[in-house]
């Protein structure tokens, strides 16, 4: 936990207050135009050099591949289901070593889990639940590209309704592709009452930076779900990553919010939401909703889900439209 009165932790107001120093260097084998990397890079600028990243298997396996690492700090690799357990081990070891005087308190580091949605939403749900329940002082950064991206875009429980994946192809009996709805991980995590919980988008760097600055002042589980547009898996040109990140927020599909001790605040509420179609159209994974025949029913269903979510937000917060 950093000193909350420190001026470095004050919320920023413009882009030029973002740190110029890099903490995740270029040269990784991650795809060009990766939305997840864009978000992690900005997060790392707040986390600084004194970190140990505990990385669940996934796309970000490719960050540190022998003999190269992009990190200025340490990195530990775990199986998909056990990153939070790995974080517990690292945190406990550090605490013990500091208590015994073998590591100076000034050399303490932040323990940061980095995991994809396949790990986070599916396999590691239990280990993470345990770590949050125990009040572990750690960070959790989930880069959510809504599929098992590293293995070629198979459906995960983060895949949204209507997206085509390798394991949910479009057919006569599944005209929408994925028929399931996306698991609401934010609410599952929130039910644990972690110290801090937030969603972030690489296209909203000030919002992202301020959320990490805020969390830095808290002790306990600090959990982040980062929207991670994926040109390789979602099938669009890499240059459009920031566009789709923006459209996800502006259509209301991806809500920017945080929860401190379980109390939810939406940190960005668009005055008027754009139609979801603007986000869906153009992504190859949704092409079947528009070609060769428009699937009105599916598009309507997605719009309806978004409208219902925000109607509920406005109702419970009393926020004016």
């Amino acid at each position: 936990m950093s000193d909350p009165t420190s001026p470095e932790l004050r919320a920023i107001k413009n882009l030029k207050q973002i740190a110029r120093e890099e903490f995740i260097l270029p040269g990784t084998a991650i795809c060009g135009g990766c939305g997840g990397l864009a978000a992690l890079r900005l997060a790392a600028k707040v986390l600084g050099p004194k970190t140990v990243f505990v990385n669940a298997a996934g796309c970000f396996t490719l960050l540190a591949t022998f003999p190269y690492t992009p990190f200025k700090g340490s990195w530990l690799y775990t199986t998909m289901a056990s990153a939070a357990a790995g974080a517990q081990g690292v945190r406990d070891a550090l605490d013990v070593l500091i208590a015994r005087g073998k590591v100076a308190a000034a050399d303490d580091v932040e323990v940061v889990v980095v995991a994809g949605d396949g790990s986070t939403y599916d396999m590691a749900l239990s280990a993470t639940s345990g770590a949050i329940f125990r009040g572990l002082d750690f960070w959790y950064f989930c880069y959510d590209n809504e599929s098992y991206g590293n293995t070629g875009m198979q459906m995960s429980s983060a895949t949204p309704y209507g997206a085509r994946t390798l394991t949910t192809p479009v057919g006569e009996h599944a005209r929408a592709g994925t028929e399931h709805g996306k698991k609401d991980l934010f609410e599952i995590w929130r039910a644990h009452r972690p110290a801090y919980l937030a969603t972030v988008s690489p296209r909203f760097p000030i919002d992202l930076t301020n959320k990490f600055l805020k969390a830095k002042q808290l002790r306990g589980p600090k959990l982040f779900i980062a929207h991670a547009p994926c040109p390789t898996g979602w099938l669009y040109d890499p240059e459009l990553t920031a566009d789709y990140a923006r459209l996800a927020v502006e259509t209301g599909i991806f809500a920017l919010k945080e929860a401190v001790d379980g109390v939810v605040t939406h940190t960005y509420v668009p005055r008027r939401h754009r139609p979801v179609e603007e986000y869906l159209r153009g992504q190859g994974r949704y092409r079947h909703l528009f070609e060769p025949v428009r699937n009105e029913e599916a598009i309507h269903k997605i719009q309806e889900q978004v409208d219902r979510y925000w109607a509920n937000v406005h109702e419970t917060t009393g926020a004016a439209r």
Partner: peptide, 29 residues
């Protein structure tokens, strides 16, 4: 500079962006 996913763009002393062509993957974002 802020949106480059790769950290392949830095800023010079006058805050002009400098693309590191040794590293830039050409995503064109």
């Amino acid at each position: 500079f802020v949106r480059c996913p790769e950290a392949a763009i830095s800023l010079d002393a006058q805050e002009y962006p400098v693309v590191d062509y040794d590293e830039c993957k050409g995503c064109l974002l």
